[in-house]
Design a protein around this nucleic acid. Structure first.
Length: 649
RNA sequence: GGUGCCAUAGCUCAGUUGGAUAGAGCAACGGAUUUCUAAUCCGUUGGUCGGGGGUUCGAGUCCCUCUGGCACUACCA
């Protein structure tokens, strides 16, 4: 049981005596914000003045404190101005709780009383496209959430819902048929497939630029005219009339937007001139986007040639992305891509038509939703199925197969609209008991505050980033007096941890600026600092001849006289609460923050409290046990974030 | 046009169901080293929490409004 709940129980009993709802009110006993006030605070009195008809919150606080029995748990409660009740745990309470943690092989984190079944859908890249920095977030956040849920005793199925059936395959199939470099393909097929993807993508981009250019020029002209008109009409009164001023500003803004777009298109046109070969290919393959869609449609329709190419390409692509997952040390329970659900789409749509859930509108099959202006399209006019169709079929499959209580989609926030419609559709067609949750996250930005791209505008590949992080870590480790082989291992662990931690420590809903230099800096708020703290716990235990895994005694009498000892001890006891808190709203950054706090508390303890040279044997035992518990907590916590530790670094 | 998200220290970011004097890291400055790992610790400087209004005993947090930014906006995924 959580320490805070022990305290709450005592308050609940006292509040019940007063004729109040103790169970719910006692939730207002929480850890203090500011440790100068103690360990816990009860913010009850000031909110009960009306209910109790007593004006003075201090008097209510008095009443509560007189009734609450904290014996054997806390020091006598103190009442502070404005009715705060401040609590301090008895050191014996902390010592007892620490012993429970020490004797437990899971740090006294209890399996949840009501385990749920979760399907966690994360990473889910399009396999034919090269993986880039944007894929880190889904992968790392999803992995951490799944591990934490599992550790808490939930049943968790992780699924990498690969994009292996979409337009991108039409693109590489088309590229393969027209732009293949056979020698390159024979030598190493995956880079050649990536190149084909990029070529086709480039040509399509150029063609849409061609189309957009005249339109945009026209739009700029129109915006200029509009601005002139508005200025003529309102210019004279703009200084005094807010509305007039606003009209002019809007017109200016509109013009600026169109001008910027035009500039971009012109730049693209200019860049195209630098590549005459590709440019002429562009002319030879007009309306490429349609051609690509046709190749995709043929694949979906079972065309023998395209299916054979797909069968040839897919294993190659999978091998390539698995190589990255191996490096990231990420495993999935399943990898059922979109292609897996292909055969379910037709029957699903037919069933929804038959039972009246879906209707045909303008030749497309739609599910009309309450609260949404536009319906969910599940089959196009041309008979092709959509992303949404696959998603519904996937829900259907998951419910049939796993009977989950919840499905989590760890996908970036730009797909929020899609998911709210998807979930509404699912609910409407009968999945109303299922928690469908879009665990969304923000965009990875470059230092310019725009989505992270290279200078030339292409996305940044994932592997070079991993290489660089590991290389930088290696440079730091270089001087350590350990074998080269071990240095490599340390660099690997530290470099990878740096990238994962930097991603996890940010609130997932925020955009964040990707700054490799900062995250591998190895000081400040980084994983290296936490890993270093772990290595220091190992070092002390090593010097004392004690193992990390075995409890050092059946029972330790923890000495908590030094404030650094006490702070560290309380920090260690918060582990379970933090994990539960993480799963409340699927926020792994709370665990990342916690581990940093543990490390800071440990560093402070390390500076001030000699362990092996402690004044007495009893003190030494107590401090050794604190080191061991710190090490175990950090190791377990980082593991739940998908980050490893090393014994020395 | 509509919908959603965001705005906190010079920079990058935290901030729990609304709680006491708003935090961390980096940067800047000043200290600590006969070391159980200095990849460390201790201290100083730094804020009208975008503006205004409201609810509340109490608002960075909830509501309204304005400003600024981003995203999404049915036959792509």
């Amino acid at each position: 049981m959580l320490l805070v709940d022990l305290v709450r129980e005592r308050f609940a009993a006292a509040l019940n005596q007063m004729g109040l709802d103790g169970t719910s009110l006692s939730q207002r006993v929480t850890a203090v914000r500011d440790t100068q006030f103690g360990d816990y605070q009860a913010n009850l009195a000031m909110s009960l003045t009306k209910q109790l008809g007593i004006q003075d919150p201090m008097q209510i606080a008095q009443d509560i404190v007189q009734r609450v029995d904290l014996s054997g748990l806390c020091e006598p409660a103190e009442i502070a101005p404005r009715g705060f009740i401040n609590l301090k745990l008895k050191n014996s309470t902390i010592s007892k709780a620490l012993n429970e943690v020490a004797q437990s092989n899971r740090l006294a984190v209890h399996p949840v009383a009501k385990p749920r079944t979760y399907v966690v859908d994360y990473s889910s890249p399009n396999v034919a496209k090269p993986m880039h920095v944007g894929h880190i977030r889904s992968t790392v956040i999803g992995d951490a959430i799944a591990k934490i849920l599992k550790f808490l005793g939930h049943k968790v199925i992780t699924d990498n819902h690969l994009g292996d059936w979409g337009t991108q395959f039409g693109m590489i199939i088309y590229g393969y048929k027209h732009f293949l470099d056979p020698a390159a393909f024979a030598a190493d097929p995956v880079p050649e497939l990536s190149r084909l993807y990029r070529v086709v993508h480039q040509l399509i981009d150029w063609q849409s630029t061609e189309k957009e250019l005249p339109k945009t020029k026209l739009a700029v002209e129109k915006a200029e005219e509009k601005l002139a008109k508005v200025q003529a009409e309102f210019g004279a009164v703009a200084a005094t009339d807010k509305k007039a001023k606003r009209s002019i500003e809007d017109a200016q803004k509109e013009l600026k937007n169109h001008q910027e777009k035009l500039k971009k298109l012109e730049d693209t046109t200019e860049a195209r001139k630098q590549q005459p070969d590709l440019s002429s290919a562009c002319d030879k393959h007009p309306d490429l986007e349609t051609r690509v869609l046709q190749e995709t449609a043929k694949l979906h329709a079972g065309d023998a040639e395209n299916k054979a190419l797909w069968d040839q390409f897919l294993p190659l692509c999978l091998e390539s992305i698995h190589h990255i997952y191996d490096r990231l040390d990420i495993q999935f329970d399943m990898e059922l891509g979109e292609s897996y659900f292909h055969n379910r789409l037709g029957p699903l749509v037919q069933r929804l038509l038959d039972n009246g859930m879906a209707k045909i509108s303008e030749g497309a099959v739609c599910v009309f939703l309450n609260g949404f202006e536009v319906p969910m399209l599940i089959r196009k006019q041309d008979g092709a199925y959509l992303y949404a169709t696959t998603d519904l079929a996937t829900i259907e499959y998951r419910v049939e197969t796993f009977k989950p209580d919840a499905i989590l989609y760890v996908v970036d926030h730009r797909q929020g609209d899609h998911f709210s419609k998807l979930f509404a559709t699912a609910k409407q067609i009968g999945y109303d008991q299922l928690e469908l949750n879009h665990v969304s996250f923000g965009t990875v930005l470059g230092k310019d505050g725009k989505p992270y791209k290279t200078r030339s505008g292409s996305v940044v590949g994932l592997e070079p980033l991993l290489d660089e992080a590991i290389e930088r870590a290696f440079q730091v480790v270089e001087s350590l007096p350990i074998p080269t082989e071990e240095k490599r291992e340390v660099a690997q662990t530290v470099g990878l941890g740096a990238i994962k931690y930097a991603d996890l420590v940010h609130n997932r809903t925020s955009d964040y600026v990707f700054d490799l230099e900062k995250m591998v800096r190895l000081d400040g708020h980084t994983s290296a600092y936490i890993q270093y703290s772990y290595a220091r716990t190992c070092s002390i235990l090593r010097n004392a001849g004690i193992s990390m895994s075995e409890p050092i005694a059946p029972e330790v009498d923890f000495v908590l006289d030094h404030s650094a000892e006490r702070t560290l001890a309380l920090m260690l006891l918060k582990f379970e609460e933090v994990l539960l808190h993480v799963t409340n709203d699927y926020m792994p950054n709370l665990l990342a923050d916690y581990l940093y706090d543990v490390s800071k508390s440990y560093s402070s303890f390390f500076e001030q409290c000699p362990v092996i040279k402690a004044e007495t044997e009893a003190l030494k035992q107590s401090r050794l046990a604190l080191c061991q518990l710190t090490g175990r907590t950090i190791k377990q916590g980082l593991e739940l974030l998908g980050i490893n530790v090393v014994d020395r670094m």
